[in-house]
Computed example of a mutant assay.
Amino acid sequence: MISFLIGIITAAIVFYMSMIYGNAALALLGCFMCVFMVLTFIALLVKAHRAVAAINIPIAIATQGESIRVSLSCRLKEAGFYGVKYRVTVKNNLSGEKSTKWLSGGSDFLYSVNLCGNYEFELVRIKLYDFSRLFYVTKRVKKYANVEVMPQIDEIPVRITDRVRNFFGDSDIYDDLRPGYDPSELFDVREFQNGDRLQSVHWKLSARTDELMVKENSLPKACAVAIVADLKGIKKGRQTDAFMKLLVSLSFSLMDQKCSHYVAWYDTAINDIVRARVDDEEGFYIFLNSFLKIKPDTKNDALFLYEEKYRAEKLVCLLSVDGRLQIKRGEEIVGRADEKNEIVI
């Protein structure tokens, strides 16, 4: 609308000059400008009503430091459509950083993602221009596209003690490689060996094979370690990014050591503690995908809330990563983001 306001002011000046100098040509020019603006305004309103804008990110996952390709388009069937500009707002939900810019054309553009987290791209509005590119109308649009930006992962030296490796506890997940003590889940059936108990003989299978066959029970894979993401008091921005890098690197290093563990955090969407179990790479990336989408809670004490919610649970080691980029076990600091000391759990 600003372009038409400038056009009206210009036409008024032309009319004023024609009255001062008694120039019929200037008066005719002013009339032409007014008619042109009215017809252009009506045509652009029709085009804006029929225009369909869209935003799309072909690859919705990236690594920190990369550039992602964002596609903007505006579909319009009528002829005489000579240009469009897009107003796009980009927000990182994890760090809270936000930026807005106008982009021209209907093609792709590259956006550099320097921080990890969930980036939300919102197409806010578009400007539609006439053939002269002097006048335009603005149309509000609400279109969204998201991309997950993975943090860089550093190796954190971790030494797993026998107490953690040999931890026995209840679990719904069982070891695929080792038999155990849980009779509710069958691990394998094998031939009878000296020392096997008669109670473990599989009598039906033994009758069919004419050999004594023994059932092996499964071994529950209980988690001996939990990591709590304590974001209380953290400053959004670069510090949040460093916190995320430390937390993810710690979880990945434990997973790499075959140490099953929980990662827990306070979810502002449900106002409660949630946690994800990490046993392998699949579990790690499921946790990462969930955590990247959160809005950091800087008020609640996540460690205290976790201990309250799971106070009956037995763990060997409860770790926390806090806003000062420290890894703590209780009140003891066992690691920092700027250090490469071995962490023993």
Rank of each mutant, 00 (worst) to 15 (best):
H202F: 09
W203V: 05
V201H: 02
P179I: 00
Y136M: 01
W203C: 03
S206T: 05
L186S: 05
E148I: 14
L123K: 01
P151G: 00
L205Q: 12
V141F: 07
T161L: 06
F192T: 00
E122G: 01
I173A: 02
E155S: 07
T138A: 10
L186F: 00
D176K: 07
V189F: 04
V158I: 14
A145V: 00
R159L: 04
I160K: 03
I156W: 00
V201S: 00
G195N: 00
K139E: 07
S132P: 08
V147A: 10
T138F: 05
V164R: 01
R178I: 08
D130P: 00
E122Y: 03
I173E: 01
V189E: 02
E120Q: 14
D154T: 09
D175I: 06
W203A: 13
F168A: 10
Y181I: 10
F131R: 03
S184M: 08
H202C: 08
D172Y: 08
D170Y: 11
E191K: 06
R163P: 03
Y181S: 12
D176R: 15
K204A: 12
P183D: 07
A145L: 01
L205G: 13
E122H: 04
D154R: 12
L177N: 13
R163D: 14
K142Y: 12
K142D: 10
K142V: 12
G169L: 09
I126C: 02
D182M: 09
V149P: 00
D176I: 15
G195D: 03
F168K: 14
Y181A: 10
L205N: 07
R190S: 09
L177A: 11
E155K: 14
P179S: 07
K127I: 02
R159M: 10
V158H: 02
E191W: 02
I126F: 05
Y181L: 08
K204L: 15
V158K: 00
I153V: 13
V158P: 04
P151F: 00
Y129W: 11
V147Y: 05
E120F: 05
H202P: 12
Q199I: 07
Y144K: 14
L177E: 15
L186Y: 05
F168L: 12
R163K: 08
R197H: 09
N194R: 10
K143W: 07
L198T: 13
R190K: 12
F135C: 09
D170I: 14
S132I: 07
N194K: 13
Y119I: 01
G169Y: 06
R165A: 09
D170R: 11
S171Y: 04
D154M: 14
H202L: 06
S171G: 13
K143Q: 11
V164N: 05
S184T: 13
K204M: 10
E155N: 11
E185F: 11
V137L: 03
F192G: 02
D172T: 06
Q152T: 15
G169M: 05
Q152H: 14
L128C: 03
D175C: 11
K143T: 10
E185R: 14
L177V: 12
F192L: 03
R178D: 07
N146D: 07
Q199V: 06
Y181G: 11
E185Y: 12
Y144E: 15
R133V: 14
R133G: 06
R178T: 12
R197A: 08
F168V: 08
R159Q: 13
E122N: 12
Y144M: 15
S132G: 08
N146L: 06
V141T: 08
Y174N: 02
N166F: 07
Q193F: 13
R125Q: 13
L123I: 06
F167H: 05
